[in-house]
């Protein structure tokens, strides 16, 4: 089984770095099943679309507010193209409307900023749980 690919989509560079560092810290603490992940970064919606098509990530952390598009629009697009891709929305607002819209458009989970170790762990554990149900195929590029 190859290492899962994670696409981090946020226009703030330290947010992407924070997610990456903390996911790796969870693997080092053996709190996750995987020892490593392959990360890709996108600061805009257009960069995210190219990387999504090129790299076919297994997991996407997607900020709801992007400079050149809405994260929710991108979510619909990604889910249409690859319904099995696990997408975790990231937002500063956990209103019921935000959460329900994200679920309706196919988001697997929802992280509310500010980030915490527990929120990131919960998202990663849900991702790994889904992977045990539907593992990454060996021949997936």
């Amino acid at each position: 089984m190859r290492e899962p690919k994670i696409l981090l989509v946020d226009d703030v560079d330290y947010s992407r770095q924070l997610l990456r560092n903390n996911i790796m810290a969870l693997t080092h603490s053996r709190l996750l099943q995987h020892n490593t992940f392959n990360f890709f970064n996108a600061g805009t919606a257009s960069a995210a679309v190219s990387l999504f098509n090129q790299q076919r990530p297994d997991l996407v952390f997607l900020d709801i507010e992007l400079p050149d598009s809405s994260g929710l629009e991108l979510l619909s697009r990604f889910k249409q193209e690859r319904p099995d891709c696990f997408i975790s929305m990231i937002s500063g607002q956990s209103t019921l409307q935000n959460v329900q819209q994200s679920i309706a458009k196919g988001a697997a989970t929802f992280i509310v900023k500010p980030f915490s170790g527990d929120k990131i762990l919960a998202a990663m554990r849900l991702f790994e749980k889904r992977l045990t149900v539907r593992p990454i195929a060996l021949d997936t590029p």
Binding site: V12, D13, Y14, Q17, L18, F115, G117, I120
Partner: peptide, 20 residues
């Protein structure tokens, strides 16, 4: 009580935040 995982923030990341 639930186990809690602390958020990891190293110096490089903190510097990046304040520069931003």
């Amino acid at each position: 009580a639930q186990d809690s995982v602390a958020l990891q923030l190293d110096d490089e990341l903190i510097a990046l935040f304040y520069t931003n």
